[in-house]
Design a binder for these strands. Sequence first.
DNA 1: ATGACTGCAAAGACTTTGCATCTTT
DNA 2: AAAGATGCAAAGTCTTTGCAGTCAT
Lengths: 136, 136
Amino acid sequence: MEQTRKHSKKRDAILRCIQSTTVHPSAEWVYSQLKPQFPDLSLATVYRNLTLFKQEGIIQSLGVVNGLERFDGTTDPHVHFICSQCGAIIDLPHISVLEDLQSTVSKKINGTIAGYSLCFEGTCEQCLQTQEDITA
Amino acid sequence: MEQTRKHSKKRDAILRCIQSTTVHPSAEWVYSQLKPQFPDLSLATVYRNLTLFKQEGIIQSLGVVNGLERFDGTTDPHVHFICSQCGAIIDLPHISVLEDLQSTVSKKINGTIAGYSLCFEGTCEQCLQTQEDITA
DNA sequence: ATGACTGCAAAGACTTTGCATCTTT
DNA sequence: AAAGATGCAAAGTCTTTGCAGTCAT
């Protein structure tokens, strides 16, 4: 039997939550956002639905930062900046040069490319600011 | 008191191991490689030293793939390809276009950039081959 | 009603840590 | 000797899973 999807308010809320933020949240973050509205929400449900969305390809995983998997409500490949101090993940506007790279790369490895992730790492503006404050 | 580093055969071996392979290994992989040569080696030691090398900046972490953190004995930022089927991480020759991007990005975010990681994802040649074999 | 969805708690998987012991200097 | 390094096992974290109850169709 084919698995038929049923409607679920919590699932909807989880998806809406991740799609309406720019923080590239972890499961825990989504959970804590929705908990007030759904007092009986379980973290397991968040994990289960996030996994589901990933499989369906409507969200993407950005990998693990400081032990927590981070998600992106957007599915198209794009560029991120991760602050190595606070773990913030900041979106950067699409950089078109990569289109060319993609075809170059697929030829080089003789494989197929499903997507890419270009990630810069360093210290974000806010953390630089904080440092200054402390040093001052 | 300043922590003085002492010499350790196992540490040396761990570093040599990760520096002399192109597989971008996990801690477990390094452990299993060295275990025959050091029967009393502990996985904890591998983890501890890997963490140490990371802090010293002589190796880099490529993030978590299928639940396992993967390392690279090389520290300079470069491009990788990850096979989403088998988890293989393949090095790709440096792509110079990124130099320009880096400065563009640092201006955009008003932060400092320590490095980047450009990662393509898809199916590697070997896995494509395997699929053909199965389908055939 | 039927099958999917969920909460809860237990189980898992990977990594870290405490402590006694062994090594290096 | 003194201080770091290691093995072992226990503890931690994040994530997944089993199961019984709940909700959507």
